[in-house]
Design a binder for these strands. Structure first.
Lengths: 238, 238
DNA sequence: TGATATCAAATCCGATCGGATATAGGATTG
DNA sequence: CAATCCTATATCCGATCGGATTTGATATCA
């Protein structure tokens, strides 16, 4: 699920407050986002505004608005007077850059989170981890989509726990799980990740900043090694 | 000047290629951006689409497009059925987060740039530094705007020199110079910065990654100290 | 056969319009 | 006098329309 389909952060009080009228642009955003995640729109594939008009039954205005948002998030690209396309798959270099950046930010975030994170948030992490573990038994083809979503929440929650909202936003803007899922959606290498998640949680529980950073660093390095196999298997994709 | 007013990166070959017809939305983007930098729009001030229609003489469509881009960059905020406003000034916490993030990324970028950056880019850095130094003699009130722009280019060029485009984008998305300028546009504390820039350039010239990272780290720390005085002078702003 | 010119369809870009909502200010009532 | 209600205005949101451009297909010619 897209986390920032709406710029308004939803807090726990939001449900009790008055419900603002829904924005059509949000639903369009979610629809396109879902089509990206489900590979209904292939990497690099054209995204025609007029087609979406016919398909979704709304006018161009909210579609343009949604595509504009997706563009600044790097999930689609636009060429003037030509139109929108889905972003290309990550190439080898981009993938390396992605992990390089994550290594700069996420261990730092984990260390701070170990100190400042609330117990309630750690509980949420725990339940996410359990859900991911439960997915090991499911059909890998289906399970990986579920896994990617929860993994994304897991990492975002730690980033939020760091207390540095800008770091969290920088990581969220990477849309790591979208790009990785579109690169490698047939993966099922989740069992190792579950172990690594458990180590991260243990360090956070122990409020051990050093251990949390190291556990996160190790997790990211190993994750990158798992994904690196893609380019050895399919060398032409690089 | 806004660097990413257009999503298309302009390379050195762009001028030789066919010049695509101009996008009205780009000019609107630049106009609003200029109004933000010139404080014609105050922090938190409302930005009415209809006013811009009258002021700029274009229809709502390109204005919405430009504002939408500015929104996802965090320079303006939007409330549904209410409208757009300029982003608030940085508060103390946000400023600290900004520098915390820069400290994670920029020394790393400088270290890599020391190894991979081209000599030509270092020359460009040098000329930017000289321009900034020349501004010391000018009227501080005017000079600081010029300084902020060149300082932004300086840091972006090093980030680009790192070879990691994602790191560069993450830093660019912070719009550091916009926020700092809107926070503290009456500053003139640029002499120290010029010395620090010289040290960074020296380390890059010497292809010394360690020294470049340390020079950058020191520069950012000292910059943050210069800006931190704002909140001691105007405690209510925090 | 291959390259070029022409043409038509698809598509985007920007303008304009009506309906819906929020906000501010004044009127009303206790 | 204070609080509430109501109305008017400003504004946004979404729909629709015409013009401009790109793009792909067809036809023509060397």
């Amino acid at each position: 699920m897209p986390k920032d389909s709406s710029p308004e952060k939803q807090s726990f009080t939001a449900s009790t407050l008055l419900r603002r009228p829904t924005r059509l642009g949000d639903e369009v955003y979610n629809a396109i986002y879902a089509q990206l995640m489900s590979h209904k729109i292939a990497p690099g594939g054209r995204i025609s505004v007029d087609n979406l008009v016919r398909e979704l039954g709304v006018s161009q205005t909210p579609i343009r608005e949604a595509l504009s948002r997706l563009e600044t998030q790097g999930l689609v690209v636009k060429r003037h007077l030509v139109g929108y396309s889905a972003a290309d798959q990550l190439n080898k270099s981009r993938l390396e850059q992605l992990y390089e950046l994550r290594l700069l930010l996420e261990p730092f975030a984990a260390a701070k989170a170990a100190v400042t994170m609330t117990d309630a948030s750690i509980e949420t992490l725990e339940s996410l981890a359990q859900e991911m573990k439960a997915l090991e038994a499911e059909d890998p083809q289906i399970a990986y989509g579920q896994f990617a979503q929860r993994d994304s929440e897991f990492h975002d929650l730690i980033a939020a726990g760091s207390g540095n909202e800008l770091v969290r936003e920088a990581l969220a803007n990477l849309h790591t799980h979208v790009h990785l899922f579109r690169l490698f959606y047939h993966s099922q290498a989740t069992a190792e990740a579950n172990d690594e998640h458990a180590q991260i949680i243990a360090a956070l529980r122990g409020r051990d900043a050093e251990a949390a950073a190291e556990a996160m660093r190790s997790h990211i390095v190993r994750s990158s090694e798992r994904f690196a196999t893609f380019f050895t298997r399919y060398p032409r994709a690089s």
